[in-house]
Every structure is written in C-alpha cells, then in structure tokens.
Amino acid sequence: MTDISAPLPHAVTADSSTDSSKDKVKDETPLMTKVAKATGSGPGKYIVWLIAALWTVPTMGLLISSFRPEDDIKTSGWWTWFGEPGNVTFDNYSSVLSDKVGGQPFSSFFWNTVRIAVPGAIIPIAVASFAAYALSWMHFKGRDALSVFIVALMVVPLQMCLIPLLRLFSSDAFEKLPLEGIPSIWLAHAIFGMPIAIFLLKNFIGSLPSEVIEAARVDGASHMTIFLKIVMPLSVPAIASLAIFQFLWVWNDLLVAKVFGGGARNQPMTYALVDMVGNKGNEWQLLTAGAFITMIVPLIVFLSLQRFFVRGLLAGSVKG
C-alpha cells in the first residue's frame, strides 16, 4: 500500500512517473516536517484517530456481516461476532453470485460492470486528451472562446441532459447505429465526463513548459508526434488520476446505466444490488456479500493507485 501524503523520502523514490514531479516533491520535503512542528499535533492526534475509527466502523460492519451465517446476520448485530470469531462462512458469497436478478446471475452483472467501466473510462479520456492538446498548443480561431465554453458546460448537471439524450438515442437516426445497450452507456458516460476531463487535462497539458513544445517544433516534430512522444508521456500522472476517477465514477454509477442501458441484460452490479434491496430487502446475507463484491474492485484500484488518485485531486487546487 502506498501512503497518501508521501511525506517520507522512501515514498518519493517509489514515484518515478516523471522526473520533474520527483524534484518538486523532494524540494518540499523539508518544509513538511517544520510546518507540522510549528502548528503542533499534541492531543490532536486522538481526534484524528477517533475520526478514523468512526469512519471505518460502518465498512467493517459490512465486511464482517458478509461472512456471518444468514440467521446470525438477521438476529444479532455484527459486533456480537467478536464474541465468537470462529463463526465464518463463505456461503453468502457463493449464493449471491448465483442469485438471479431479472433472469441474470449476479456474476454476469459483475462482468457487465467491467464491460461498462473500462471503455467508459478510456474513451472520454482519450478524446479529452486530444482536445486538451488542441486547446493548449494548436492555434485556431475561437480557441479561447471554446475553452471558456467548456468550463461553462461543467455547470450542466447530468440530470438535465438525461431525458433529452434518452430521446435522442432512441430516435430513428440513432436506431441505425450499433449503439444499443452497453455502447450507449459508454457514449453517455463519455458525454457527461467530457467537460471536466477536458478542463482538468487542459490545465495540466497547458501548463507544460512551452519551450519544450517549441523545442520539439524546431526539431521538426508534427503535432501528432509532439502529442504522442512528448505530451502524452509527460501527462501520465494527470491522465492516470483522471482515469482512476472516471473509472470509479462509472463503476459506481447507477443512474446513467439505468437510464441508457435498457434491460437487465446490459445492467451493472449497482442495478442488481438496488433490485435486490427492493425485492429481497431482508436477505441481508445476499446484500452484504453483493455490496462487498461491488466494492472490491474500487477498493483495490483505490489502494494500489492512491498516489495517482491523490495527485489528480490536487491538480490545480494546491499552490506550489
């Protein structure tokens, strides 16, 4: 597990994504310790650990419950498990995976989620990278106006476009395109993710040193070459963090899939889980295991790629 704050040198050396960022982190290292010393942590650490514990309890409850036998879950609190810690079963997981929602086994919803989330993260980021490059380094009329317009589009709530977009997708013109089912979920996610993706990537790509881009032009590189050989490799941290964001967002999404996906055949796990809450609201052995299965991939992604994730959060929001 990587740590969030990377205050220690060993965490810094583990980071080899770009050399410039490495230098930057290194430079800040001596500052961190001193500010902490200056503002003091003393008894404050108990507050921190108290909140950390409070934040963990609900998730721990779910995890423990998912391994308890059905009768125990329904009749006693999960904390009673600590009195009989040997009482562990994997039955909940095996039964939820074969449990059917809308005629489909739960496991097939897992794969639907994978099918939706991977391209749902990659497509918008690929498109946004090209657009962000054009907005930063290509010269064309109306470039600045377009950039402002994209910021303005971040205002549009997803909800505002659901109905018209749904009508658009089900119109005759779109009927002919092979977009039914999962591809229309991709498309919807790509559309909704576009403004923020372009905005964040433009912030990053536009702040690359202009002299490096100019040096490449003097060296004879075309825009495509500069984009692929210089801008993309340098943007790995920004792209990675945005990709993780978008992936988690799409993975956890219910609304877009529900509106655009059509029948249960194309739906992700969140759909199945909500269906189970509605129809089998008391089958907690299924719900806990099901919920944990939906969480497992985000948690792995989150824990293993936390470093990128945090850097993405910080894009443009922290001085220095």
């Binding site: 770009t18 050399d19 410039s20 040193p209 002299e211 490096v212 100019e214 040096a215 490449a216 032009r217 003097v218 060296d219 004879g220 590189a221 075309s222 050989k229 210089i230 490799p233 340098l234």
Partner: peptide
Amino acid sequence: GPQQRDIAMVFQSYALYPNMTVEGNIAFA
C-alpha cells in the same frame, strides 16, 4: 514553420524532453 527552416535553438530553460534520456534528447530530431 520552424520545422522547415533547418535551424536549431537552445532555450533559456533548455527545454529538454523530460521523458527522454540524454541520448533520446540528442537523437530526437
């Protein structure tokens, strides 16, 4: 365009390509 003028330029900040090795930088053009 700058590509078609057959010039080489040394920038104030050097403008080295951070993602390439020294060899890659020199060989890029």
